[in-house]
């Protein structure tokens, strides 16, 4: 082991002072690799995340809902682009990252491997899934890597619209027919537990978390963020008039926090390993978009060369 070099000392001092690391700074290889993995996974999640809701674009119940959904799905594409752009500051290439995603060498959030069965799912994704994403992402606006933190600030501004349109959709459905209310409850039943899994494995099983927190890449532990999410969401469920599918859910009067039941981590692992209900379909569609869209890139390149 060599003595810490001057650049390492400078890096450590920058982190300790809560200043940002910028692309031109020296950084430890582990820091760079961790960031590439996390940002790429995040970017992939945004891009794959267009699919579950995109499925409903042509079947939206009104022009208003269709315009809203279109704007939201377009935002997800934008979020993916901001993040790939941040990843590229670390010396990777976005086409390469996409290939890794398609080949299964990089992951995306397991939540997007569940199907969207009714339009209530669109509302519940906005409320619960984007709600969980906000919980995860707001602290990342203070991430130690400048380009990532800046991308997150932009994303968080837009996520608020996503969550509110979802909740409003659900309020509308809950004020509708018995069938519509049942649809909302059914969607909540299916999405609640997967949304809790979005925060990742429990702290005890998350070996990389401590280093990521020491580097200021992550700001809070998985369990801490999960608890914060539950505490924020339960009152929203009560207002909406739906039942969260957890018989153990109860308020601890002393701490003011909610106790919740055990999460099925075996399911999480299965879905992450590719055995979720829609894994194969999501990747097949991403592959088709890359391969069948290649001619568009070629045509634009040819046009640019002709007019250069």
């Amino acid at each position: 082991m060599t003595a810490p070099s001057l650049v390492q000392e400078h890096f450590d001092a920058t982190i300790a002072a809560e200043h940002r690391i910028e692309p031109r700074d020296w950084m430890p290889e582990g820091y760079r690799k961790t960031l590439v993995r996390q940002i790429a996974q995040h970017a992939h999640s945004e891009i794959i995340g267009m699919q579950p809701e995109g499925d409903w674009l042509l079947a939206a119940p009104s022009l208003r809902r269709k315009a809203i959904l279109l704007a939201k799905v377009q935002d997800e594409a934008g979020h993916g682009m901001y993040l790939y752009s941040a990843a590229e500051t670390l010396g990777v290439d976005r086409a390469d990252l996409t290939d890794k995603l398609i080949e299964g060498r990089q992951k995306y959030s397991s939540i997007f491997n569940y199907p969207t069965l009714t339009y209530a799912d669109v509302g519940v994704i906005g409320w619960l899934v984007d709600g969980a994403a906000i919980c995860n992402q707001v602290p990342l606006c203070r991430s130690s890597y400048g380009p990532y933190a800046r991308a997150m600030i932009r994303i968080c501004k837009e996520e608020s619209f996503h969550q509110r349109q979802g909740y409003e959709l659900l309020l509308t459905m809950m004020a509708g027919t018995h069938e519509q209310r049942a649809m909302v409850q059914d969607a909540v039943d299916r999405w609640w537990w997967p949304s809790l899994m979005m925060f990742g494995p429990p702290d005890a099983d998350s070996p990389n978390s401590a280093q990521s927190m020491a580097w200021g890449i992550k700001r809070h532990s998985n369990d801490e963020l999960r608890q914060r999410y539950v505490d924020m969401t339960v009152p929203q469920a009560e207002f909406l008039g739906v039942t969260l599918p957890d018989p153990e859910l109860s308020l601890d009067p002393e701490t003011g926090r909610y106790h919740f039941g055990a999460i099925d981590w075996e399911e999480f692992k299965r879905v992450l390993a590719g055995e979720g209900p829609r894994n194969a379909e999501r990747i097949a569609r991403r592959r088709a978009a890359r391969d069948e869209g290649a001619w568009v890139l070629e045509a634009a390149t040819a046009y640019a060369e002709k007019h250069a």
């Binding site: 692309p23 020296w26 390469d96």
Partner: peptide
């Protein structure tokens, strides 16, 4: 290359691995 401001390269700056193979300029 890599965006978000110019990135110096040279012997004293650790090389970032992987060429950017996108045909389109940044």
């Amino acid at each position: 290359e890599g965006g978000h401001g110019a990135v110096p390269t040279g012997p004293e700056v650790p090389a970032v691995p992987g060429p950017v193979r996108s045909g389109w300029p940044l």
